[in-house]
Amino acid sequence: MTILATEGLTKRFPRVTALDRLTVSAGPGVTGLVGANGAGKSTLIKILLGLLPPTEGTATVLGLDPATRALDIRRSVGYMPEHDCLPPDVSATEFTVHMAQMSGLPRSAARERAADTLRHVGLYEERYRPIGGYSTGMRQRVKLAQALVHDPKLVFLDEPTNGLDPQGRDDMLALIRRIGTEFGISVVVTSHLLGELERVCDHVIVIDGGRLLRSSAIGEFTQATRTITVEVEEGRQALADRLTALGQTVTAHGRLLIVETDSPAAFDVVRDAVVDLDLCLVRLEQGRHRIEDVFREEVANV
Protein backbone atom coordinates (compact mmCIF):
# COMPACT_ATOMS: atom_id res chain seq x y z
CA MET A 1 0.00 0.00 0.00
CA THR A 2 1.22 3.51 -0.86
CA ILE A 3 0.05 6.47 1.19
CA LEU A 4 1.54 9.07 -1.13
CA ALA A 5 3.33 9.17 -4.46
CA THR A 6 4.60 11.85 -6.82
CA GLU A 7 5.81 11.65 -10.40
CA GLY A 8 7.85 14.49 -11.87
CA LEU A 9 6.21 16.91 -9.44
CA THR A 10 7.30 20.50 -10.04
CA LYS A 11 6.21 23.78 -8.46
CA ARG A 12 7.59 27.06 -9.76
CA PHE A 13 7.01 30.46 -8.22
CA PRO A 14 8.03 33.71 -9.96
CA ARG A 15 11.54 33.73 -8.49
CA VAL A 16 12.12 30.21 -7.23
CA THR A 17 11.50 26.56 -8.07
CA ALA A 18 10.19 25.00 -4.86
CA LEU A 19 9.90 21.45 -6.25
CA ASP A 20 11.94 20.19 -9.19
CA ARG A 21 10.72 16.99 -10.91
CA LEU A 22 10.22 15.20 -7.61
CA THR A 23 9.41 11.49 -7.94
CA VAL A 24 8.98 9.64 -4.65
CA SER A 25 6.59 7.36 -2.77
CA ALA A 26 5.97 6.35 0.84
CA GLY A 27 4.15 3.48 2.52
CA PRO A 28 2.36 3.15 5.87
CA GLY A 29 4.11 3.98 9.14
CA VAL A 30 6.01 7.09 10.16
CA THR A 31 7.79 8.80 7.27
CA GLY A 32 10.22 11.65 7.84
CA LEU A 33 10.49 14.42 5.26
CA VAL A 34 13.93 15.95 5.77
CA GLY A 35 15.40 19.12 4.35
CA ALA A 36 16.73 22.52 5.28
CA ASN A 37 14.36 25.46 5.54
CA GLY A 38 13.31 26.31 2.00
CA ALA A 39 13.93 22.78 0.69
CA GLY A 40 10.32 22.42 -0.47
CA LYS A 41 8.81 20.39 2.38
CA SER A 42 5.84 22.64 3.14
CA THR A 43 5.16 23.22 -0.56
CA LEU A 44 4.99 19.46 -1.11
CA ILE A 45 2.49 19.00 1.73
CA LYS A 46 0.27 21.82 0.44
CA ILE A 47 0.21 20.26 -3.02
CA LEU A 48 -0.64 16.84 -1.55
CA LEU A 49 -3.54 18.44 0.36
CA GLY A 50 -4.82 20.18 -2.74
CA LEU A 51 -4.05 23.63 -1.34
CA LEU A 52 -1.57 24.45 -4.13
CA PRO A 53 -1.68 23.36 -7.78
CA PRO A 54 1.53 21.88 -9.18
CA THR A 55 3.19 23.47 -12.18
CA GLU A 56 3.94 20.05 -13.68
CA GLY A 57 3.73 16.41 -12.72
CA THR A 58 1.26 14.37 -10.71
CA ALA A 59 0.65 13.31 -7.13
CA THR A 60 -1.63 10.93 -5.24
CA VAL A 61 -2.56 10.68 -1.56
CA LEU A 62 -4.23 7.46 -0.41
CA GLY A 63 -4.74 6.73 -4.08
CA LEU A 64 -6.55 10.03 -4.72
CA ASP A 65 -5.46 12.88 -6.99
CA PRO A 66 -5.26 16.20 -5.08
CA ALA A 67 -6.05 18.08 -8.29
CA THR A 68 -9.53 16.52 -8.51
CA ARG A 69 -10.21 14.89 -5.11
CA ALA A 70 -8.87 17.46 -2.64
CA LEU A 71 -12.00 17.47 -0.44
CA ASP A 72 -12.00 13.68 -0.22
CA ILE A 73 -8.33 13.73 0.73
CA ARG A 74 -8.88 16.31 3.47
CA ARG A 75 -11.69 14.19 4.95
CA SER A 76 -9.22 11.32 5.38
CA VAL A 77 -6.09 13.30 6.25
CA GLY A 78 -5.11 15.46 9.23
CA TYR A 79 -2.81 18.46 8.91
CA MET A 80 -0.75 20.17 11.60
CA PRO A 81 0.63 23.39 10.06
CA GLU A 82 4.03 24.78 10.92
CA HIS A 83 2.94 28.29 11.83
CA ASP A 84 0.82 29.37 14.78
CA CYS A 85 -2.78 29.66 13.59
CA LEU A 86 -4.86 29.20 16.75
CA PRO A 87 -7.60 31.61 17.91
CA PRO A 88 -6.55 32.94 21.34
CA ASP A 89 -10.03 33.56 22.76
CA VAL A 90 -11.48 30.06 22.57
CA SER A 91 -10.66 26.94 24.55
CA ALA A 92 -8.90 23.88 23.21
CA THR A 93 -12.18 21.99 23.51
CA GLU A 94 -14.16 24.55 21.50
CA PHE A 95 -11.54 24.71 18.77
CA THR A 96 -11.07 20.96 18.49
CA VAL A 97 -14.84 20.34 18.44
CA HIS A 98 -15.19 22.96 15.70
CA MET A 99 -12.46 21.31 13.60
CA ALA A 100 -14.10 17.90 14.09
CA GLN A 101 -17.41 19.28 12.84
CA MET A 102 -15.64 20.86 9.88
CA SER A 103 -14.47 17.34 9.03
CA GLY A 104 -18.05 16.09 8.99
CA LEU A 105 -18.63 14.73 12.51
CA PRO A 106 -21.99 15.54 14.18
CA ARG A 107 -21.70 17.74 17.27
CA SER A 108 -22.17 14.98 19.86
CA ALA A 109 -19.57 12.76 18.21
CA ALA A 110 -17.28 15.77 17.75
CA ARG A 111 -17.38 16.57 21.48
CA GLU A 112 -16.66 12.96 22.40
CA ARG A 113 -13.79 12.70 19.94
CA ALA A 114 -12.36 16.06 21.08
CA ALA A 115 -12.28 14.95 24.72
CA ASP A 116 -10.56 11.67 23.82
CA THR A 117 -8.02 13.35 21.55
CA LEU A 118 -7.14 16.09 24.02
CA ARG A 119 -6.59 13.39 26.63
CA HIS A 120 -4.24 11.54 24.29
CA VAL A 121 -2.13 14.65 23.65
CA GLY A 122 -1.95 15.54 27.35
CA LEU A 123 -4.31 18.53 27.48
CA TYR A 124 -7.35 17.01 29.17
CA GLU A 125 -6.96 18.97 32.43
CA GLU A 126 -6.41 22.24 30.55
CA ARG A 127 -9.00 21.75 27.84
CA TYR A 128 -11.37 24.54 28.93
CA ARG A 129 -8.74 27.28 29.25
CA PRO A 130 -8.47 29.90 26.47
CA ILE A 131 -5.71 28.98 24.05
CA GLY A 132 -4.19 32.47 24.35
CA GLY A 133 -2.91 31.53 27.82
CA TYR A 134 -1.21 28.35 26.65
CA SER A 135 2.54 27.79 26.46
CA THR A 136 4.18 27.04 23.12
CA GLY A 137 4.20 23.32 23.91
CA MET A 138 0.51 23.32 24.77
CA ARG A 139 -0.34 25.20 21.57
CA GLN A 140 1.57 22.61 19.54
CA ARG A 141 -0.50 19.91 21.24
CA VAL A 142 -3.72 21.70 20.30
CA LYS A 143 -2.59 21.76 16.67
CA LEU A 144 -1.83 18.05 16.91
CA ALA A 145 -5.22 17.32 18.50
CA GLN A 146 -7.17 19.06 15.75
CA ALA A 147 -5.23 17.07 13.15
CA LEU A 148 -6.23 13.80 14.85
CA VAL A 149 -9.77 14.50 16.03
CA HIS A 150 -11.59 13.12 12.96
CA ASP A 151 -9.66 9.81 13.12
CA PRO A 152 -7.74 10.26 9.86
CA LYS A 153 -5.89 7.55 7.97
CA LEU A 154 -2.87 9.82 7.51
CA VAL A 155 -1.56 12.98 9.21
CA PHE A 156 0.88 15.56 7.90
CA LEU A 157 2.87 17.18 10.73
CA ASP A 158 4.84 20.21 9.53
CA GLU A 159 7.77 20.96 11.89
CA PRO A 160 5.83 19.82 15.01
CA THR A 161 8.73 20.47 17.42
CA ASN A 162 9.23 24.10 16.39
CA GLY A 163 9.78 26.38 19.38
CA LEU A 164 9.85 23.59 21.95
CA ASP A 165 12.45 23.10 24.66
CA PRO A 166 14.30 19.74 24.85
CA GLN A 167 11.71 18.14 27.13
CA GLY A 168 8.88 19.44 24.97
CA ARG A 169 10.55 17.99 21.87
CA ASP A 170 10.95 14.62 23.58
CA ASP A 171 7.28 14.61 24.58
CA MET A 172 6.13 15.57 21.08
CA LEU A 173 8.30 12.88 19.47
CA ALA A 174 6.87 10.29 21.85
CA LEU A 175 3.35 11.36 20.84
CA ILE A 176 4.25 11.06 17.16
CA ARG A 177 5.59 7.56 17.67
CA ARG A 178 2.39 6.57 19.54
CA ILE A 179 0.28 7.86 16.65
CA GLY A 180 2.13 5.60 14.25
CA THR A 181 2.29 2.50 16.46
CA GLU A 182 -0.68 2.49 18.87
CA PHE A 183 -3.24 4.47 16.87
CA GLY A 184 -2.41 2.87 13.52
CA ILE A 185 -2.38 6.22 11.72
CA SER A 186 0.29 6.81 9.07
CA VAL A 187 2.38 9.92 9.68
CA VAL A 188 4.42 12.19 7.44
CA VAL A 189 6.50 14.49 9.65
CA THR A 190 8.77 17.24 8.38
CA SER A 191 11.81 18.51 10.23
CA HIS A 192 15.15 20.20 9.61
CA LEU A 193 16.45 18.62 12.86
CA LEU A 194 17.74 15.35 11.49
CA GLY A 195 18.46 13.61 14.78
CA GLU A 196 14.80 13.85 15.78
CA LEU A 197 13.62 11.78 12.85
CA GLU A 198 16.03 8.94 13.64
CA ARG A 199 14.07 8.40 16.84
CA VAL A 200 10.55 8.10 15.41
CA CYS A 201 10.60 7.29 11.69
CA ASP A 202 10.40 4.04 9.75
CA HIS A 203 11.31 5.70 6.45
CA VAL A 204 13.06 8.96 5.55
CA ILE A 205 12.79 11.10 2.41
CA VAL A 206 15.57 13.66 1.96
CA ILE A 207 15.01 16.63 -0.34
CA ASP A 208 17.15 19.66 -1.06
CA GLY A 209 16.26 22.57 -3.31
CA GLY A 210 13.07 20.75 -4.26
CA ARG A 211 14.96 17.69 -5.54
CA LEU A 212 15.02 14.19 -4.14
CA LEU A 213 18.37 13.25 -2.62
CA ARG A 214 17.42 9.93 -1.10
CA SER A 215 14.44 7.86 0.03
CA SER A 216 15.26 4.90 2.28
CA ALA A 217 14.16 2.87 5.28
CA ILE A 218 15.64 4.27 8.48
CA GLY A 219 17.80 1.17 8.89
CA GLU A 220 19.59 1.94 5.64
CA PHE A 221 20.49 5.40 6.88
CA THR A 222 21.70 4.18 10.27
CA GLN A 223 23.46 0.98 9.22
CA ALA A 224 26.41 -0.20 11.27
CA THR A 225 29.88 1.20 10.63
CA ARG A 226 33.28 -0.37 11.27
CA THR A 227 33.69 1.61 14.47
CA ILE A 228 32.94 1.33 18.17
CA THR A 229 31.49 4.24 20.12
CA VAL A 230 32.81 4.53 23.68
CA GLU A 231 31.83 6.93 26.47
CA VAL A 232 33.21 7.06 29.99
CA GLU A 233 32.30 9.41 32.84
CA GLU A 234 35.90 10.54 33.36
CA GLY A 235 39.33 9.59 32.03
CA ARG A 236 38.53 9.84 28.32
CA GLN A 237 42.09 10.91 27.42
CA ALA A 238 43.67 8.20 29.54
CA LEU A 239 41.50 5.62 27.81
CA ALA A 240 42.38 7.03 24.38
CA ASP A 241 46.08 6.84 25.22
CA ARG A 242 45.78 3.25 26.47
CA LEU A 243 43.86 2.10 23.38
CA THR A 244 46.32 3.83 21.07
CA ALA A 245 49.19 2.08 22.85
CA LEU A 246 47.37 -1.21 22.27
CA GLY A 247 47.34 -0.56 18.52
CA GLN A 248 43.81 0.80 18.14
CA THR A 249 42.97 3.82 15.98
CA VAL A 250 41.06 6.25 18.20
CA THR A 251 39.39 9.58 17.41
CA ALA A 252 37.83 11.93 19.97
CA HIS A 253 34.34 13.20 19.13
CA GLY A 254 33.07 15.43 21.93
CA ARG A 255 32.56 13.23 24.99
CA LEU A 256 32.89 10.12 22.85
CA LEU A 257 35.78 8.05 21.57
CA ILE A 258 35.42 6.47 18.14
CA VAL A 259 37.51 3.31 17.80
CA GLU A 260 38.05 1.89 14.32
CA THR A 261 37.72 -1.85 14.14
CA ASP A 262 37.49 -4.76 11.71
CA SER A 263 37.08 -7.45 14.37
CA PRO A 264 34.66 -8.13 17.28
CA ALA A 265 37.77 -8.64 19.43
CA ALA A 266 38.12 -4.85 19.62
CA PHE A 267 35.16 -4.80 22.04
CA ASP A 268 37.18 -6.98 24.42
CA VAL A 269 40.21 -4.69 24.08
CA VAL A 270 38.11 -1.64 24.98
CA ARG A 271 36.39 -3.41 27.86
CA ASP A 272 39.68 -4.61 29.35
CA ALA A 273 41.24 -1.14 29.04
CA VAL A 274 38.28 0.42 30.87
CA VAL A 275 38.60 -2.15 33.66
CA ASP A 276 42.38 -1.75 33.95
CA LEU A 277 42.02 2.04 34.29
CA ASP A 278 39.12 1.64 36.76
CA LEU A 279 36.84 3.91 34.68
CA CYS A 280 33.06 4.14 34.76
CA LEU A 281 31.73 3.00 31.38
CA VAL A 282 28.66 4.88 30.12
CA ARG A 283 28.40 3.53 26.59
CA LEU A 284 30.02 0.83 24.47
CA GLU A 285 28.22 0.15 21.21
CA GLN A 286 28.60 -0.51 17.51
CA GLY A 287 29.01 2.77 15.65
CA ARG A 288 26.24 3.71 13.24
CA HIS A 289 25.75 6.25 10.51
CA ARG A 290 23.48 9.17 11.34
CA ILE A 291 21.01 10.76 8.96
CA GLU A 292 23.00 13.98 9.26
CA ASP A 293 26.15 12.24 7.95
CA VAL A 294 24.33 10.69 5.02
CA PHE A 295 22.58 13.98 4.20
CA ARG A 296 25.91 15.79 4.15
CA GLU A 297 27.40 13.17 1.82
CA GLU A 298 24.41 13.28 -0.53
CA VAL A 299 24.51 17.09 -0.74
CA ALA A 300 28.25 17.02 -1.44
CA ASN A 301 27.71 14.63 -4.34
CA VAL A 302 24.94 16.63 -6.00
Results as ranks from 00 to 15, higher is better:
184 G>S: 05
185 I>W: 08
167 Q>W: 10
188 V>R: 01
183 F>E: 13
195 G>R: 11
180 G>Y: 06
181 T>Q: 13
162 N>A: 15
184 G>E: 01
174 A>R: 15
195 G>L: 10
168 G>S: 06
185 I>H: 06
195 G>T: 11
163 G>D: 10
161 T>R: 06
167 Q>D: 13
163 G>R: 12
175 L>T: 04
170 D>T: 13
189 V>F: 07
189 V>I: 13
187 V>N: 06
172 M>H: 07
179 I>M: 03
194 L>D: 05
170 D>K: 14
188 V>C: 07
165 D>P: 00
184 G>M: 06
175 L>W: 04
171 D>G: 04
177 R>S: 13
195 G>F: 10
186 S>T: 08
162 N>K: 13
195 G>A: 14
180 G>P: 00
189 V>N: 05
160 P>H: 11
189 V>K: 04
188 V>G: 02
181 T>E: 14
173 L>Q: 04
169 R>S: 05
188 V>T: 02
171 D>C: 11
174 A>G: 04
173 L>W: 05
187 V>E: 01
163 G>E: 12
167 Q>Y: 13
176 I>A: 09
181 T>G: 02
175 L>P: 01
174 A>P: 00
165 D>T: 09
166 P>Q: 11
195 G>Y: 10
195 G>Q: 11
195 G>I: 08
160 P>N: 07
175 L>C: 11
175 L>G: 02
160 P>I: 09
161 T>H: 10
191 S>Q: 04
176 I>T: 11
180 G>N: 06
176 I>Y: 07
195 G>K: 02
174 A>I: 04
189 V>S: 03
186 S>P: 01
168 G>E: 03
